[in-house]
């Protein structure tokens, strides 16, 4: 029997293809194909029939319905995209700050890291549910039993005759704090690893040359961490894009299963996807230029 002889490079190509074949099949079957279908669905009226489903082409009707008829979509869409976009820089700054904090030497550092990383283990969905199930929180906001409850603070600010918009902003920020912290687990770890990979000798050399801590931060720490800043930006965008407290995703899911139908739901998700893709592209282009790569 003649054995099939392949050149070494062909053999290697074949092996590479063999090992990565599961992904290629999976990508085509469970991502690319449904992705293409979702374009068609968003342009059709989908009805379930006994043998499967039927599609009637309706053109851009679903999009028109979403943008002009649906009472909630526009409002929720704008709110979600704005909240998300506003949260990204805050999450990044916080996680960078927290990573610097955890990178210092102090007793109980391991414990602090364990706690900071806990939100990743607990999962965003369940954390959110916990917050919603916190009946005491709801009760306290009605009563005045807290030592310095939020409502007293609000009264204080109102008596100070501060503008309502400002008070609203402060309370929005206070409400966001736990969300920001909980959305930062992985980013803290990535920044922490980046900080630890910077050789100590660089700082020693800078110190010998008379650089201050401030200068060392901007000339050493920041440039060396910047490639991971980009990674973290992308991760944060993708993460908040699919976050559990995302009202728009809830709207999309509800539209699919108990409302306007599959066609409208896919149309909604397409509008959303394009918006987020836009945000992603703009941030990558803006940040990509400023990132320092070692060559």
């Amino acid at each position: 029997m003649r054995r099939l002889r392949l050149s070494l490079s062909a053999q290697k190509s074949l092996l590479g293809l063999l090992f990565t074949l599961p992904f290629i099949v999976g990508f085509l079957a469970f991502l690319a194909y449904p992705f293409a279908q979702s374009v068609i669905f968003s342009l059709s009226k989908l009805t379930i029939v006994p043998t499967g489903y039927e599609l009637d082409f309706v053109g851009l009707d679903n999009y028109r319905h979403v943008l002009t008829v649906d009472p909630r979509f526009r409002q929720v869409f704008v709110e979600t995209v704005v909240t998300m976009a506003a949260r990204i820089p805050v999450v990044l700054i916080f996680s960078f700050f927290a990573a610097n904090l955890l990178n210092q030497k102090f007793r109980g550092r391991m414990l602090a890291r364990v706690i900071f990383f806990l939100p990743v283990i607990m999962g965003a969905e369940i954390s959110l549910k916990m917050q919603q199930a916190d009946y005491m929180q709801q009760a306290v906001s009605f009563s005045e039993s807290g030592l310095l409850s939020l409502s007293t603070l609000q009264q204080l600010l109102t008596t100070l005759k501060l503008p309502q918009g400002f008070i609203g902003f402060i309370f929005q920020a206070i409400n966001e704090v736990p969300l920001i912290i909980r959305a930062s687990g992985i980013q803290i770890l990535i920044f922490l690893a980046a900080l630890q990979s910077i050789p100590k000798s660089l700082y020693e050399a800078a110190h010998m040359e008379g650089a201050t801590g401030w200068e060392a931060f901007w000339k050493i720490t920041f440039p060396l961490v910047s490639p991971l800043l980009l990674v973290n930006v992308v991760y944060t965008i993708v993460d908040s894009f699919t976050a559990a407290d995302n009202a728009l995703l809830e709207l999309i899911q509800n539209a699919a299963w108990m409302g306007a139908g599959f066609g409208v739901s896919t149309a909604m998700s397409w509008i959303y996807f394009l918006a987020v893709l836009g945000i992603l592209a703009v941030t990558i282009i803006l940040l990509g230029r400023r990132v320092h790569y070692e060559t």
């Binding site: 469970f30 991502l31 194909y33 449904p34 992705f35 279908q37 979702s38 669905f41 499967g52 489903y53 992308v234 993708v238 894009f241 699919t242 995703l249 999309i252 899911q253 699919a256 599959f262 739901s265 896919t266 998700s269 397409w270 996807f273 992603l280």
Partner: peptide, 15 residues
């Protein structure tokens, strides 16, 4: 990694 599962939720379910 970037495609959210909600994008393909409906077709995937039907498939």
């Amino acid at each position: 990694i970037v495609i959210p599962p909600q994008m393909v939720m409906v077709p995937l379910f039907l498939n």
